[in-house]
Write a protein that binds this DNA or RNA. Sequence first.
DNA 1: AAAATAATGTGTTTAATTTACACATTAAAA
DNA 2: TTTTAATGTGTAAATTAAACACATTATTTT
Lengths: 246, 246
Amino acid sequence: MAVTANAKQAKNIKSLLAIQSEVKGSNRIALSVDCVIFGFDENKLKVLLIRSDLKKYQSKWSLLGDIVGYQEDLDTAAYRILKQRTGLDDVYLEQVHTFGAVGRHPAGRVVTVTYCSLINIRHHKLKILDNELHWHDVMSVTDLAFDHQQIFSACYQWLQKRIQEHPLGFNLLQKKFSLRDLQNLYEAILNTKLDRRNFRKKFFSMDFLLDIGEMEQDVPHRPGKLYKFNYEKFEKKKKKWIGIDF
Amino acid sequence: MAVTANAKQAKNIKSLLAIQSEVKGSNRIALSVDCVIFGFDENKLKVLLIRSDLKKYQSKWSLLGDIVGYQEDLDTAAYRILKQRTGLDDVYLEQVHTFGAVGRHPAGRVVTVTYCSLINIRHHKLKILDNELHWHDVMSVTDLAFDHQQIFSACYQWLQKRIQEHPLGFNLLQKKFSLRDLQNLYEAILNTKLDRRNFRKKFFSMDFLLDIGEMEQDVPHRPGKLYKFNYEKFEKKKKKWIGIDF
DNA sequence: AAAATAATGTGTTTAATTTACACATTAAAA
DNA sequence: TTTTAATGTGTAAATTAAACACATTATTTT
């Protein structure tokens, strides 16, 4: 019995040397990074898409991505893509999921690591302004190229969940924002209506909003106060955890 | 301006053809899957580790992993590793994160996709029983090989969070379990004490526990009722979401 | 200049949930 | 038979979430 087990082990468990040979061998796979870049404009959640350039395959919209260099960290690759496409380099970026089904890409075996990025659509002023690169309403994104629809859906769901337990939404707003801006953002992302009074109470009680003593300018109604998010305070007070619930 | 932008675009954006050549080219990277396999025994959370076989490098403990085959789905590779190492093939498995720093592995550039698995330690009876493969107390895991300590920590934190919002813990218990078992599990994973009465109330109110009309056997005290988790009911009633809180 | 409009800003009341805590019950062990 | 150590149930207080109404302010209209 022990012998059988060891025999099985010998067959199944690879030594580091064996791995080393495989690393140099034929199992090497192309690795890409795809970025789901979210923006917020006119109270709508947007996603940045590019048109697949090769009509021969499909002229559908797709996510922004590129092959990871052999000497390039994954995170670095994601930042590079963002920088190239938006001109911004100080942006929120978080890895979400890796998609690696064998037939997912027409160019061959490509495993893709997906990142979500949240950028301020006003700040960035797309460096590449032509009809190949466009902001799309999240609610009307359908039929993306390759498996990008699946990837996009996963990332959108991730965002909906993540925004409720982590303060990343602020990256989509101006540094100074009104509570109405913030609520509009949450309503757009969660695709629901929220009670204005309870929404305020919730955020004030969390106590991370910094009243900067300024008011909105040039609004066609009574101007609201402007706030900043206090990241330092958040880092200190961060919740340990929540409570069992499913 | 528009010309400049287009020039930049031409330089930065790759056609599918260009990608195709890269996919076949020198950017191909070795891809591995590492599994953090959790178990629960004697009221302690355990993780399955293997001793790095090549002393030349390090004789430290490491996670179970292997290179992903060129024609193998990522998920398939993770299942294969689990099957080889535990003999089980109907197990809970979920992708957690991908680690891809350039220098992370001594054998060369290897990007690794990490999965967490939860198995019933009693059911599986390790197929390979020797001193190379061992269950370790989660609380005393330190100094793993390569970047496996970092990977393990990320996965443990993932589990602590995930178990509070999703019913995956049951995979660590027998099909039939007592409420005490369940509480012990949560206490071990969250590394805390919980109030027995409130814990019960919470789970009963969620209403996914199925009283199967059986009692514990061979316990040295008053036997408790046994339950099963009602996955079907859970799938139907699943929460939309929770509420903003961070 | 005054009135109407449309948003901001602030409570309060009720319901639901979470927390803290106590006692009866059952089976095994002494 | 008594003691022990766990299971099983319930209640009161505190906190949090949900539902809801009115005064305030700047703009726009009359």
